[in-house]
């Protein structure tokens, strides 16, 4: 008898989920949700959180060498935002019943991923510009779209993040502009950074719609609102113009405006490289993970000390 009633409640609850989906109402933590929905969100949101945190590393590589006090402040503030955004996203993911410690353990075991883009090195100061302009520029296209995602805490985190990230892309573009107006060496650094970051930035949107394994569910559940190719096109269209204004060359000989589609056509993306980096063979995969593991292990005694102090004093 009891079992049957449970199933009944379950059915009613699930129909509420479906109705909310249909009405475009956000799903909240205590709502019943299909297992697959919860799993998909945990996977996507924790990957997003890890990306923010791992993303601190390539830019962090230049903090001590930032060439002016102003540049240093801006870069510090920006990396600090990435850290804050990682925190917003971890908290939002924790509402799904997984702890931050579990998520970090999954990152360390390789079960959870982070954005591939951070497996590329930041080799000269212009890379800091390229990361802000291209990488954050690509991320924000995706994040603006995610503000309308169906899970309430994720959507709210995205609204906050988008509001804060608006300066990131500008600071990156400002660095590129300064370098392009600078000495010959500075212009060379800027173009070099452009050449190395352009294609990986396009890869950030993921495989073409025809090859994307998760697209189906993500759309059904309104986690994702626009396809990889739509978002990529949006990014290319706005970025090409910005590159032209400051005299940077987009490293794609096949790039052409398509009047009919009202979008740029671009050359083929090197998906072999994309999958190679995902498989762990990018230039910095080991370095990034080793850094994260090392820091986490080195901080253990601090976390234990704070816990021990609380236990002794029962402060809360």
């Amino acid at each position: 008898m009891e079992l049957k009633e449970d199933i009944n409640i379950q059915n009613v609850a699930m129909s509420i989920f479906d109705r909310k989906m249909e009405m475009d109402e956000p799903i909240e933590p205590k709502d019943h949700m299909p297992d697959g929905y919860r799993k998909h969100l945990i996977r996507q949101m924790s990957q997003h959180a890890h990306s923010e945190v791992i993303g601190m590393q390539p830019e962090g590589n230049w903090i001590t060498r930032a060439p002016s006090l102003r540049a240093k402040q801006i870069l510090l503030a920006k990396i600090q935002d990435e850290c804050g955004h990682g925190l917003y996203l971890y908290s939002a993911t924790e509402t799904l019943g997984i702890s931050r410690a579990e998520m970090i353990a999954q990152l360390h075991s390789g079960k959870a991923k982070y954005s591939n883009i951070f497996n590329y090195p930041a080799l000269n100061w212009a890379d800091v510009g390229a990361i802000g302009w291209l990488v954050d520029g690509a991320a924000i296209v995706n994040q603006v779209s995610l503000q309308r995602t169906s899970y309430g805490p994720y959507s709210r985190a995205m609204v906050r993040i988008c509001k804060e990230e608006s300066f990131h892309q500008r600071q990156g573009y400002e660095i590129m502009t300064k370098m392009m107006r600078g000495t010959k060496e500075q212009r060379e650094m800027a173009q070099d950074a452009m050449n190395r970051w352009w294609w990986p930035s396009l890869m950030m949107f993921g495989p073409h719609d025809s090859d994307s394994p998760h697209t189906g569910d993500a759309f059904k559940w309104k986690i994702k609102r626009q396809s990889n190719d739509e978002l990529r096109a949006k990014f290319i269209d706005k970025t090409v113009q910005q590159a032209e204004v400051i005299g940077l060359t987009v490293p794609d000989k096949e790039l052409r405006w398509n009047e009919e589609k009202k979008h740029y056509d671009h050359g083929p993306i090197n998906w072999a490289e994309f999958y190679k980096v995902i498989a762990g063979f990018g230039p910095c995969n080991n370095q990034r993970m080793e850094h994260h593991k090392k820091i986490h292990a080195e901080g253990a005694w601090v976390r234990e000390a704070a816990e021990a102090h609380r236990a002794k004093h029962q402060r809360q």
């Binding site: 945190v53 601190m56 590393q57 962090g60 903090i63 001590t64 240093k72 402040q73 510090l76 503030a77 990396i79 600090q80 850290c83 804050g84 990682g86 925190l87 971890y90 850094h291 820091i295 080195e298 901080g299 253990a300 601090v302 976390r303």
Partner: peptide, 22 residues
């Protein structure tokens, strides 16, 4: 202080240390 960026024992403290650096 800025050397601590992306190296703090908890994320919350990473923010605190970079805030002081700023």
């Amino acid at each position: 202080l800025a050397e601590w960026c992306s190296r703090a024992p908890i994320l919350e403290e990473d923010l605190a240390l970079t805030n002081m650096a700023l």
